[in-house]
Structures are given as C-alpha cells and as structure tokens.
C-alpha cells in the first residue's frame, strides 16, 4: 500500500484538461446565459476559476453598453462561441462561420435543438453539422444526448470532445442517466464534458466522479440567488469530483465491511 505524505496530498491537485491541443487547468467551463449584468458575469467567472466561457451571437443592439468579449478577456477567459438557438444544421454551420468571423476562433460549441419545449438536441442535424464544421476546419464541441452510440459517431466525425447532457438545459435535474454517461466515458478517446442539467454542486461532483473530463454549466450559476458563491461551489465540486475519480472509489457493497481489524479482539465475556 502506498503512503501519501501530507505534502503529497497537498500537491495532488486534479490534472489539467487537455482538449484540442490546449491545456486547461480548470475543468469547469462556464456558460454566460442568464446573467443579469456584465458585473455579475465578471464576479462569477472569477469565482469559478473557468478559463473558457461560452458566448452566443445575436443581432447588434445599438443601445447596449459594454462588451462581454472584453469582460471575459479581462477575466482571463477564452471564448467558446455557441450556436444556441439553431434548429437546423444549416443555421448552425452559418452561425459557427459568423462566430469565427466575429471572434477569430475556430472553436465552436455546436448546439442544434430539436424541440423548443424539452430543448433536447436534434441528433441527426447535430451529426450533419458536426461533419460539415470539421470539414471546414472547426474545432467542434457538440452538445449531445446521453447516447453512447451518438457520442461515438460524433467522435468518429472528428469532434474535439463530446458533450452529453445530464438532463434538459436549464432543468437543474442533474444526471438522469449515470449508466449511459459511464458508457460514453468508457468508449470515448476524446474528452467527455457534461453539458446541461446541473442544478447544484453535488451534480457537478457526480459528473466528475463518473469520469467526465469536465463540466459545462450556466443556469445553475447564473440563476442562483448568489451567482458568485455558486460559481465558487461549482469550482470546488468539479475539483473534488475529479480528485475522487483519480483516487479510485471503493466498490459499493450491500453489507457492511469492518475497517477495524478483528485480530487481537479481547475476550471480554464475563
């Protein structure tokens, strides 16, 4: 049995997330949808420790003051533009090209929604869009169902990561199918980033314990009563979950197993 000195334990921070040739110290990626002000984004992003944050593309609002691009760059965050709001592969591909033009990045979070009530991804359109974007030189992070077959198809299509949902966007229902998630993690040779459904810190920790390489979340922080505090909680949860995963948990048992040795028990019968 290896011994861990206190010094080792202190140094045993979770390893970085390596994705698409980049190394991210933080395994938490933050979405910026739902923040009320640019100031609250700044505080929460800082507290989250995230080095990557999503942004969306929308029509220019001439009355808008300030720029989210500046706020995120000042906070040391790189931008991951998304295709939120797209319902077809065609729209998503055009949106990704516009984002590349606006933000000078090839990275894109591909999101093609199939239904505006559940906000579940459209698997067929997502795969078509992923293939086109990869062919067009994009580094594609596809939002997908928790379907191991689809995740594998997206990886084969050349995506840089796969991003299965835990539950519907903004639902806060956590991880509804941990078994599928484990299958996705076991099969994937690209990073698996849990995307959507996180409600609170324990959900993020569970995703990481299941072996996900990262967590992308927005609503759970942006709509929390105190976004900066929740962002800090998520940072700790992602780190804790990753450390637990790397440390290797004990198996679950139906019955108890004593941790105290049974040898040397005294005979205390009267």
């Amino acid at each position: 049995m290896s011994r861990t000195t206190p010094a080792d334990a202190h140094e045993a921070t979770a390893g970085p997330l390596e994705v698409a040739g980049r190394r991210l110290t933080s395994r938490l990626i933050i979405g910026t949808g739902g923040f009320r002000t640019l100031e609250s984004i700044e505080a929460a992003v800082e507290a989250s420790g995230a080095e990557l944050a999503t942004v969306a593309l929308r029509r220019v609002d001439p009355s808008a003051r300030g720029s989210i691009v500046d706020v995120l760059r000042d906070a040391g965050c790189d931008l991951l533009p998304n295709t939120a709001g797209c319902f077809t592969a065609r729209d998503a591909v055009t949106t990704a090209r516009l984002a590349r033009e606006a933000l000078a990045t090839d990275w894109v979070k591909l999101e093609v929604i199939g239904d505006d009530r559940t906000l579940l991804p459209d698997p067929a359109e997502t795969l078509v869009a992923a293939e086109q974007l990869v062919a067009d030189g994009f580094v594609v992070f596809p939002y997908t169902n928790d379907d191991p077959v689809l995740a594998s198809r997206l990886e084969q299509a050349g995506c840089a990561a796969v991003m299965p949902l835990g539950s519907p966007i903004g639902s806060g229902m956590g991880i509804r199918n941990p078994y599928n998630l484990r299958m996705i993690v076991a099969a994937a040779s690209v990073p698996v980033i849990l995307d959507a459904g996180i409600g609170t810190a324990s959900d993020a920790a569970i995703a990481m314990e299941l072996g996900c390489d990262g967590v992308l979340l927005a609503s759970s922080v942006t709509r929390a009563e105190n976004p900066a505090r929740m962002a800090r909680a998520m940072r700790l949860a992602v780190e804790a979950g990753r450390l637990a995963h790397e440390a290797g948990r004990i198996p679950r048992r139906l019955y108890g197993e004593a941790s105290t040795p049974t040898e040397g028990l005294p005979d205390l019968d009267g």
Binding site: T32, G33, V55, A56, R58, R59, P81, K109, A196, S219
Partner: peptide
C-alpha cells in the same frame, strides 16, 4: 442583412 456580435449566452 444581419449584423451580429457576441452576447452573453448559453452553456
């Protein structure tokens, strides 16, 4: 003609 820019959005 659509003129777009980055805004807060999404996960």
């Amino acid at each position: 003609v659509e003129v777009l820019r980055a805004v807060q959005g999404g996960a």
